[in-house]
């Protein structure tokens, strides 16, 4: 299914995509902006755009890493974004093998 922001990727969404793609060489990378679900959220004041994303990443770089480690890899790549208004990301991080076995 196409991600919601697929037609017109907003700046942060494309930055996220770029950063993750180049570092993780992901075979699947879905970036879905779900900020609209969190409008009115206590932490989202004023600039309510591009604060919440769902990420689905399949990368062989996750092999041999636990979930915490995988999420840390993603968070580390998105450090600047988290500093500059990205509020939360929901991460599904799998290896190609795990996807294949499902």
């Amino acid at each position: 299914m196409a991600s919601r922001g697929g037609a017109a990727l907003l700046p942060r969404a494309s930055r996220i995509k770029q950063k993750l793609q180049s570092a993780l060489e992901a075979s699947v990378l879905e970036v879905e902006d779900v900020s609209y679900q969190h409008a009115g959220h206590a932490a989202v004041k004023g600039n309510a755009n591009e604060t919440h994303f769902n990420l689905r990443i399949v990368s062989s770089k996750f092999s041999g890493q636990g979930l915490v480690k995988r999420h840390r890899m993603v968070y580390d790549l998105l450090g600047e974004e988290l500093q500059s208004g990205l509020h939360a990301v929901s991460i599904v991080a799998k290896t190609p093998q795990e996807v294949g076995s499902n």
Binding site: L67, V68, H71, Y75, A88, V89, S90, I91
Partner: peptide
């Protein structure tokens, strides 16, 4: 070294957040 909440700890170790 984890930028978001919630955070769940088990026996002193970070287990992860909501997704995990």
């Amino acid at each position: 070294n984890w930028p978001t909440f919630p955070q769940i700890f088990l026996n002193g170790e970070l287990l992860g957040g909501c997704d995990i």
